[in-house]
Design a protein around this nucleic acid. Structure first.
Lengths: 212, 212
DNA sequence: ACCCCGATCTGAACGGTGATTAGAATCTAA
DNA sequence: TTAGATTCTAATCACCGTTCAGATCGGGGT
């Protein structure tokens, strides 16, 4: 927690590619969400504070309060968006595969891919202490919708215990994703002499070989 | 973030069951670790700060610095201990089961049980932003040791792709544990009309049915 | 064209947290 | 009794979340 640079907010307005020279930009809400994601991606989830996000977006610390009642609401909004995107990607995977087995596999793969490609979203989505899900039914509903994509296919495929299968697939994908994101797979690369990608690849192959 | 109570450190020394009326206790390091675990368990991982831990242990905010160079070191120490405990429990599970399949299953179950019974440890162990693992090889080594218990059995059991199997089992257990700990399973209870325990039970049964 | 209003943003402030350090105080053991 | 280890007190410094009065802006009514 040692930070040297003393930063003064938006004075020079970095104003990289973003146009508008000052004040209003009309799309601050959007920009705040993006800034937050950028921040998590570049400096980790520990760096997320409302002030920091505001700074990242080039506005003063009070500005976000015109778009979100509080910090948790910002995070919940990102969480919601993440779940929606996840649902889309899982749905795409589902409809792009033929047969139950291929569909299930593709959905799990999509889950893992989503996590790895959008680590910031993924981390935000599954940190209850950050997004306080009790208070933000939107995020929760979006989560439910994403999982409905999975359970939908599972229900149709006539497994002996659909719930067990759904939870198992979810757990498998979630575990793989979490381990990858937290660096556990890459870190133990020397234990196995295999890269993260390769480990995931093999795990997915194993799952394939196991589904009926 | 609204806290009213202004606390003065160890003055009255809450001194619940802990003896020693004042000053020295000689086992502060130990107590700090325990206090930290207690804290995560009762108030969540967000409440962990060196000051808070010190307060919990009934000492001043500066005291921990005689036992840990900084906050991350404390967390890393807990992480290390957690991995050691996990290794023990997995080893117990291994030696208590007969046959490869039973052994593997028992170890995964032990993993999940460990996480649920010691959520504090588990969260600390797998939050790289907290324990900064690069800096604390002890924790990493302890982690490797724990996984060696799993890979040991996997290697002996003559699977086609031992690495793939090991990662898969790990991911499965880790995913189940993470989802449970973050409240995802309990939260979707109404989706499935099943309790968290039951969902885990079914997932484990599924895993059982799948292992050759 | 003007002016006014509500939405938006600034900048400063309040009350609080945290990590970390320095030096004084206290206890234990020799 | 004194040395050394341990812990305390007090203070420094960086941040955070949140609020609020006031500056600024865009657009609608006149």
């Amino acid at each position: 927690m040692v930070v040297k640079k003393r930063v003064t907010y938006a004075r020079p307005v970095p104003d990289g590619e973003r146009k508008r020279a000052s004040y209003h930009h009309g799309a601050l809400r959007e920009e705040l969400l993006e800034a937050c994601v950028r921040l998590v991606e570049s400096e980790g989830i520990g760096a997320v504070s409302l002030r920091r996000v505001a700074r990242e977006a080039g506005v003063s610390p009070g500005a976000p309060y015109h778009h979100f009642p509080d910090r948790a609401a910002l995070l919940a909004a990102i969480s919601t968006r993440g779940f929606q995107q996840l649902a889309v990607e899982m749905e795409t995977a589902r409809s792009g595969a033929d047969g139950f087995r291929a569909k299930l596999l593709a959905m799990v793969a999509a889950y893992v891919e989503f996590a790895r490609r959008h680590r910031a979203y993924f981390q935000l989505m599954f940190r209850p202490e950050l997004s306080e899900p009790e208070k933000h039914p939107d995020a929760r509903a979006a989560g439910d919708a994403a999982f409905a994509v999975l359970t939908g296919v599972v229900a149709e495929c006539g497994a002996a215990d659909p719930d067990g299968l759904a939870v198992s697939l979810w757990a498998f994908g979630h575990g793989l994703a979490s381990l990858a994101i937290d660096g556990q797979l890459g870190r133990r690369g020397d234990l196995w002499n295999l890269s993260e990608d390769e480990l995931i690849e093999r795990a997915m192959r194993f799952l394939d070989s196991v589904l009926d």
